[in-house]
Nucleic acid binder design. Structure first.
Ligand SMILES: [Zn+2]
Ligand SMILES: [Zn+2]
Ligand SMILES: [Zn+2]
Ligand SMILES: [Zn+2]
Lengths: 133, 133
DNA sequence: TGCCACACGTTATAGCATAACGCAATTGAT
DNA sequence: ATCAATTGCGTTATGCTATAACGTGTGGCA
């Protein structure tokens, strides 16, 4: 994976996600970028589509929202299966890459001759900070 | 978990899901039940809410759809973390309960002092039958 | 009887995502 | 240089998913 040259819109969307302290919905991103000329949802969704393709952004299926990838993308780096913890109080998200999970899921799929395309693991609950409060 | 006495609407929704050979969206369920007097989405969503609570139905977050639980509910039976395989061609869904996955995710969460409320694992791809074709 | 809890029905609205059209800029042959 | 193909962009309209808010009816129970 080379470093992709992003378009203006893609950069704006990625910046919005990078500076957010919680996942953002597409429509929230749209609102944040109205001052930069964004007017319609498709402008956001088209940028997100590419950013997802490049691995710079992740989609959180269980909350219909998006986050910037927490990993560095300077070097060629593809991560495999990722589990996300999502705090339902503060929105904090962490990415967990674990080979035990990855291999076990791979084994379970193989066992039933299932050909995996994409795996989603999302753990919703309360982060350390919020659980303490 | 005792055997819950379901209402008419809940039974209709559960039947629709039980007899389907693929996950159904709430609106698809609504259409299937129009002949039985269903007129509005809320009738479906309210039934689903209870069925999810009773563990008789699962929600597939990654495709905004619902399936009847594949396990028997005659006896008291709560399943823990479940991974779903979802065939993108035929819609076939299987439920995988695996203690290795469950314990590993529990360990990972504990490690970062995250308090888990609900875990979603969904593997999308192609089932044995469809992958062969 | 009066109260409460719960399921239900209806209308309206909110929130998430894509279809379809046309235009403009870029690229990469010929 | 020119043409064709690709890609991104902007706009309008539409479709799909989910919930808010209000009112009704029924059964259990003090
Ligand atoms: Zn990442
Ligand atoms: Zn938190
Ligand atoms: Zn189940
Ligand atoms: Zn299949």
């Amino acid at each position: 994976m080379a470093d992709h040259q992003l378009t203006r819109n893609q950069n704006l969307v990625l910046d919005a996600l990078s500076h957010a302290d919680a996942p953002l919905s597409a429509y929230t991103i749209l609102d944040k970028l109205r001052d930069h000329g964004f007017r319609a949802p498709l402008q956001v969704y088209r940028a997100l589509e590419k950013l997802l393709e490049f691995g710079l952004v992740h989609r959180l299926e269980s909350i219909n929202a998006f986050v910037a990838c927490a990993h560095r993308h300077d070097h060629a780096h593809e991560h495999g299966v990722t589990a996300f913890t999502i705090c339902e109080d503060c929105g904090n998200v962490t990415e967990l890459c674990d080979s035990v999970i990855e291999e076990r899921l791979s084994f379970l799929a193989t066992q039933q001759k299932f050909k995996t395309e994409k795996t989603t693991i999302e753990i919703r609950g309360h982060c350390q900070t919020c659980a303490a409060a």
